[in-house]
Amino acid sequence: MITALTSLTILGAILGLILGVAARVFRVEGNALVAELVDILPGSQCGQCGFPGCAGAAQALAEGRAPVTLCPPGGRAVAIALAAKLGVDADVSGVQDSVPMIAEVREELCIGCTRCFKVCPTDAIMGAAQQIHSVFREACTACGKCEEVCPTESVKLQPVPVTLHAWYWNKPVTQTMQTVAA
């Protein structure tokens, strides 16, 4: 009995020591996850999620403080990518697969106040004071900040017009479960 007691105690002590050492040797510094999450997010730092910029949102996501559906400009695709990265089973059906949007200036209403121009996080609005502004399509992330500040409602988010170049086939709908009775 004494043998059992001593041998098991010593074994426990040695294993404990090994684990303690291992914990020090293999300590993970920082959080690689946050960096990967930042890569997934749009990076326009628009702040619509309520966190300070995309890095703040990534931090919150990594700590589980925010749902993967937090990014409105990212839409469904980003939500799915985040869920996959975090390994969570998110219900993304609530996130409407937003038609890609873009800001457009209605020239007859624009007074050239430059407010939209100042808040745009990606410098996608061109123009100067007292001149009608216009949107540089390639740079607009449809974050909607310009829409918020525009005093005359001349800036509005509109669906991106489909072009021959961007058009592609819809997903076929004739499916197995299509036979579901109404």
Binding site: G12, G16, A23
Partner: peptide, 11 residues
Amino acid sequence: SEEVRIPVYIV
């Protein structure tokens, strides 16, 4: 402690 909690619980 964090490091040895699983062996402790198991035992």
